[in-house]
Amino acid sequence: MRKKTRPAFRTEPWHPRAWQVQSLLLAYPDDAFAENLALAERAARTLPRPVAEPLLRFTAHAARTARPAPGRPPGTAPADLAAAYVTTFDHRKRCCPYLTYYAYGDTRKRGLGLVRLKQTYAAAGWRLADDELPDHLAVVLEFAAADPGTGSRLLTEHRAGLELLRLALTDDHAPWAHVLDSVSATLPALAGDDRDAVARLAAEGPPEEQVGLDPYAPPQFLPDPVAGGPR
Rank of each mutant, 00 (worst) to 15 (best):
Y102R: 12
A197K: 14
S184E: 05
A103E: 15
G111P: 09
R153E: 15
A144C: 03
R195V: 08
A217Y: 10
R153K: 13
G113F: 01
C96G: 08
S152A: 13
L99H: 08
A189M: 06
D193I: 09
T186P: 06
G205M: 00
W176F: 06
T186C: 13
A124N: 13
D214E: 15
Y121S: 11
V198E: 06
E142S: 00
A217S: 13
L154M: 09
A122P: 09
E208Y: 08
L137A: 13
R116G: 10
D181G: 11
F221R: 06
A144H: 03
R110K: 11
L137Q: 07
R166Q: 06
D172P: 11
L190E: 11
P219S: 09
Y101N: 12
Y121H: 12
R153D: 14
L155T: 00
L213A: 14
V140R: 00
A185D: 07
A129V: 10
A202W: 08
L187N: 00
E142F: 00
V183I: 03
C95V: 07
R127H: 14
V140Q: 01
L128A: 01
T120E: 12
P188R: 11
W126I: 09
A217K: 09
G161Y: 07
R159Y: 00
R166A: 09
L187V: 03
G151N: 04
G113H: 00
A203K: 06
D172V: 10
H136M: 07
D90A: 01
V179Y: 00
D214V: 12
A129R: 15
Q210H: 14
L114S: 07
R110S: 04
D131Q: 02
P223W: 10
E208N: 13
P134L: 12
